[in-house]
């Protein structure tokens, strides 16, 4: 029975990510001399995870649907610059600035989506183009309009309370936004018809379209969600830190993709889970920020991330094969053979 339960858990898309998280924390505790309570209670990695997680979810959804969006790297600074230019530099009401930031996300997402469904160019290339183009636009617009590469923003109290507050002095309120996003995405992806369409679309677009699934509409909406999420993260950052920077955001591309892949989403689409992406993001954040709590030199963190990525992908691969070959007749045998804890 024990083996059966273990086998069932291992077959889930998030198994690899959950194991990675445990392994990374164990590694830090055993070899990094980390005080676990101290590290887990720290705000730094949770803040990091929340900002990353809000972008990682739509990136993961797109990947499940068989697409990729790397323009998020430009949309984060674009969101923060837009609100700061509108409401900081031009002193327009904050709602105008927010609408501008999120509206820009809608426009860029729409462009990405329309280009992807109308052409046969891979979305990686299309969003690479919009990434570079948006970088140029943000840079020149801020220099032309404000003459600076950093624009101050003084958001009103209520806006700060909702989007840019530090809870308990160090926990960014965006953590709550992230958790809410995870719950909503989980409900939609795994418990609604839309979720089923998403997996079908990523599995085989043609076969999904035949029974009437609106694959083009879905792709466009997913690109919009992704660009808006990125500009939302940028917007919250500007509200919290009272200023916007033109640079920054490029790391998010790499970080989000690693989180999603560690989280068990199949790069070629059709397979993955929100819980997996959640764990993948946590794992990435623990490695990236938790390293400061260890005796390990910070420069090693990239190596750890590389090794972890490889391990997680290998684990995800074997768990997926396990799920494929699973036969209900002899679950105990299967689970025992492939149970790594016995090996």
């Amino acid at each position: 029975m024990y083996n059966f339960v273990v086998g069932t858990i291992l077959r889930r898309p998030e198994a690899g990510a959950a194991l990675s998280l445990i392994l990374v924390v164990l590694f830090f505790v055993l070899f990094g001399g980390v005080d676990i309570a101290n590290m887990l209670g720290a705000a730094s990695w949770v803040n990091f995870a929340a900002n990353l997680g809000i972008v990682a979810i739509p990136v993961g959804l797109l990947m499940i649907a068989g697409e990729l969006d790397i323009s998020i790297g430009a949309m984060i600074p674009a969101g923060s610059m837009t609100i700061s230019i509108l409401s900081g530099h031009y002193e327009l009401p904050i709602l105008v600035g927010m609408a501008g930031a999120l509206g820009l996300g809608v426009i860029v997402g729409l462009i990405n989506g329309l280009l992807t469904v109308r052409t046969s160019v891979p979305s990686l290339i299309i969003t690479l183009a919009t990434l570079v183009a948006m970088q140029g636009i943000v840079l020149s617009a801020s220099v032309l309009l404000t003459g600076k590469a950093s624009v101050p923003l003084a958001a009103p109290e209520w806006t700060k309370a909702i989007f840019g507050q530090l809870i308990g002095g160090s926990y960014q309120i965006i953590i709550l936004w992230w958790l809410a996003f995870v719950v909503v995405a989980w409900a939609v992806v795994h418990h609604s018809r839309f979720g089923n369409w998403l997996f079908a679309m990523g599995g085989d677009k043609e076969s999904a379209r035949n029974p009437g699934i609106p694959t083009t509409k879905m792709a466009i909406w997913l690109f919009i969600l992704s660009a808006v999420s990125a500009s939302f993260v940028g917007m919250c950052g500007a509200i919290l830190f009272n200023s916007a920077q033109v640079s920054g955001g490029m790391n998010y591309i790499f970080n989000a993709i690693v989180s999603v892949v560690v989280g068990g989403v199949l790069l070629t689409g059709g397979f993955g889970s929100i819980i997996g992406i959640f764990f993948g993001t946590l794992t990435f954040a623990v490695v990236n920020q938790g390293i400061y709590f260890t005796d390990i030199d910070r420069n090693w963190s990239s190596l750890i991330i590389g090794v972890m990525l490889l391990l997680a992908v290998l684990m995800n691969n074997s768990f997926r094969n396990l799920a494929m070959t699973y036969s209900p007749r002899k679950p105990a045998v299967k689970a025992a053979v492939t149970n790594p804890s016995k090996a």
Binding site: R193, N196, A200, A208, G270, F271
Partner: peptide, 19 residues
Amino acid sequence: GTFPLMTIGRSFFVGVEPT
């Protein structure tokens, strides 16, 4: 089956999911 990574129940009802 064109959706190798979907479950039997989910792929059976693609596009006409019971709710």
